[in-house]
């Protein structure tokens, strides 16, 4: 649980962050979204005290971060930056071992842990452990950077544009991997991005920022369907359809969907978005797909037409 209260930061009289407050519940992901220069990265770096705020309070899991030594604080917070920040003179294994070493783990435990992480990230231990960062591709570097951030199993993870330097294809692949990584599901994460789709894909909550202040905070659905101001409305306007479909989950429209025939195999889960459903339908060139709701153990049917009509219904009602 992260609680930030009224934090501000001046750089030589220029206010980069203005009186910002937010909360991230345990195991949730908060996305700080905004154009460059909006103060989102500054806000993120205040959380692990890479930047000291001019005023405000931050508590992580109940502890005031300013009462700790910065080094000690940071060892309990994972950090992934845009350019991986891997040590070029350390191997992959040595890079992953940095924080555990600082924490004084023994060699065996460190090795087990890094091998485990590499496996989770689908990097072969024999092939990658001894490599140096300049021998890795961009996607591999970011995966190693994530492994390094997770090495000591910190409860909190900060990510600064973690996919920002990747090409669109690698980016989609690495993003997907991150989403599926079991370790990440239990982490409290604050992620900075300027990419709206990324924010919608990864964020439980999104803080939309502009000029150092928060314009609106809420779930993706709240932001896209209930903009509180002109800025929020305009921010999403040019890719509205896709974002709206991404924000809507099947479980949100569960009642509107027809039951599936008995025995049909489900290829989607109810927590996935309408957009994902449309993509899968188009990808497989199918008329119809089944969606399963694990909570109620029911299966429903979707087609392009049902998605379209439900979507239009919702739009009309708002």
């Amino acid at each position: 649980m992260i609680i930030a209260q009224n934090i501000s930061k001046d750089f030589n009289g220029i206010q980069a962050v203005k009186d910002i407050s937010f909360q991230v519940k345990e195991g949730q992901t908060l996305v700080l979204l905004g154009t460059s220069g909006c103060g989102k990265t500054t806000t993120l770096k205040i959380l692990n005290r890479l930047i000291e705020p001019s005023s405000g309070a931050v508590r992580i899991n109940g502890e005031d971060i300013f009462s700790l030594k910065p080094e000690m604080l940071r060892r309990s917070i994972g950090y992934v930056s845009q350019n991986s920040g891997l040590f070029p003179h350390y191997t992959v294994a040595e890079n992953i071992a940095i924080v555990p070493k600082l924490l004084g783990w023994d060699q065996k435990k460190i090795r087990q842990r890094s091998e485990d992480l590499l496996r989770q990230l689908k990097l072969s231990v024999t092939e990658y452990a001894g490599k140096y960062p300049d021998e890795l591709s961009g996607g591999e570097k970011q995966r190693v950077a994530l492994a390094r951030a997770l090495a000591s199993d910190p409860p909190v993870l900060l990510m600064d544009e973690p996919f920002g330097a990747l090409d669109p294809i690698t980016r989609a692949a690495v993003q997907k991997e991150f989403l599926e990584l079991p370790e990440l599901k239990s982490k409290t994460i604050v992620l900075v991005t300027h990419d709206v789709q990324e924010a919608f894909a990864l964020g439980d909550q999104i803080c939309l920022m502009d000029k150092g202040g928060i314009m609106q905070t809420g779930t993706p659905k709240e932001l896209i369907f209930g903009p509180e101001n002109e800025f929020s409305r305009n921010f999403f306007s040019h890719q509205r359809l896709q974002l709206e479909l991404s924000a809507l989950k099947f479980k949100d429209i569960w009642k509107e969907l027809p039951d599936a025939k008995r025995g049909s195999e489900a290829s989607l889960e109810s927590a996935q978005s309408l957009w994902e459903g449309m993509e899968l339908l188009a990808e497989n060139n199918q008329e119809m797909l089944s969606v399963i709701n694990a909570d109620t153990d029911s299966v429903k049917e979707i087609t392009i037409q049902t998605i379209q009509s439900v979507y239009l219904e919702i739009k009309r009602n708002r």
Partner: peptide, 27 residues
């Protein structure tokens, strides 16, 4: 030395001296 590297060193909780000896000087 790439500032991204020294920043990530600091973000992982290395002290100034540790960064100097393990990162900046070797690089």
């Amino acid at each position: 030395v790439d500032p991204a590297v020294t920043e990530s060193a600091a973000a992982m909780g290395m002290s100034k001296w540790q960064i100097l000896l393990n990162v900046q000087l070797p690089l």
